[in-house]
C-alpha cells in the first residue's frame, strides 16, 4: 500500500526527482496564485464590489482577526506567512474531492518542510522583534537550567506540528482507501466529506499553532 505521494516518482535524475508531492504542490500553488491574480485584477475601492472581491476581503479580514486574537498586535506583518500556511493546507485538503488527486500535505516531506519553515520563522520573528540577544535570552528563562528543556521543547513542537498534519492528512486518504475495499458504495463518500472538514480544521490548527508559537517568541519579553 502506497502511503505517501513521495513514492509516485515521474522523473528522476540522481537525488533530483519529480514526484507526485511536488507536482500536486505546484498544481495547488498554480490554483492559488492564478486565482488570486484573477480575483484581484480589478479591485474596486468603492462601496460596490464583486462577489469574488468580497469573498477575498472576508478571507483576509477574518485571517487578520484570527491572528490578532492569537495575540499578535500587528497582524499585517504575519498575514503573508500564516495566511499562506492556512490557504495552502486548506486548498490541499479541499482538492481531495478531485479523483486521483493526492494532497501534498499527506507527504511527511511536505509537513516536515512546513514545520521546518515554522521552526525557522519563530526565531526569525523573535529576533526581528526583540533582537538576537533578547531572543536567545528567552531560552535561559526563568533559569539557565531550563536551557536544554527549552531547546528540546522547540524541536519537539516542530516535530509535533509536522507529524500531526501528516498523520491527519495521510489518515484521511488511508481511511478512504480501506473503506473502499470494505464498503465501496456509501462510507467512502461520507469519509471524503468528513476529510474535507478535517482538512480545513487541520489547516486552521496548523496555522493557529504556528501563530501561537510566533506570538510566544515575540511576546515573551513584554
Amino acid at each position: 500500500m502506497r502511503v505517501s505521494p513521495d513514492e509516485t516518482v515521474f522523473w528522476e535524475y540522481g537525488v533530483v526527482k519529480l514526484n507526485a508531492t511536488l507536482v500536486y504542490t505546484w498544481i495547488v500553488m498554480a490554483i492559488l496564485v492564478v486565482g488570486a491574480y484573477w480575483a484581484t485584477r480589478r479591485l474596486s475601492v468603492d462601496e460596490r464590489r464583486s462577489r469574488w472581491q468580497s469573498a477575498l476581503e472576508i478571507i483576509v479580514i477574518t485571517t487578520l482577526g484570527q491572528i490578532r486574537e492569537i495575540g499578535l498586535d500587528r497582524p499585517e506583518k504575519y498575514l503573508g506567512f500564516l495566511g499562506t500556511i492556512f490557504l495552502f493546507v486548506a486548498v490541499s485538503a479541499l482538492l481531495t474531492v478531485v479523483p486521483i488527486y493526492e494532497p501534498p500535505t499527506a507527504s511527511l516531506s511536505t509537513t516536515v518542510a512546513l514545520a521546518l519553515t515554522v521552526f525557522v520563522m519563530i526565531p526569525g520573528y523573535g529576533i526581528k522583534d526583540r533582537g538576537l540577544m533578547g531572543y536567545l535570552q528567552s531560552y535561559v528563562e526563568p533559569t539557565v537550567v531550563m536551557l536544554p528543556f527549552n531547546i528540546i521543547g522547540e524541536i519537539a513542537r516542530t516535530i509535533a506540528l509536522a507529524v500531526r498534519l501528516f498523520g491527519n492528512m495521510m489518515s484521511g486518504g488511508m481511511i478512504v482507501g480501506v473503506l473502499l475495499t470494505l464498503t465501496p458504495l456509501f462510507f467512502p463518500a461520507i469519509m471524503t466529506a468528513f476529510g474535507l472538514l478535517t482538512g480545513v480544521v487541520q489547516a486552521y490548527i496548523f496555522s493557529v499553532l504556528a501563530g501561537v508559537y510566533i506570538a510566544a517568541a515575540v511576546r515573551s519579553h513584554s
Binding site: 513521495d6 537525488v15 533530483v16 526527482k17 514526484n19 508531492t21 511536488l22 504542490t25 501534498p104 507527504s107 511527511l108 516531506s109 511536505t110 516536515v112 518542510a113 512546513l114 521546518l116 519553515t117
Partner: peptide
C-alpha cells in the same frame, strides 16, 4: 522523509 522533496517544498 525525502530530503530533496523537503527542500523543494520549502
Amino acid at each position: 522523509i525525502d530530503w530533496f522533496t523537503v527542500g523543494a517544498q520549502i
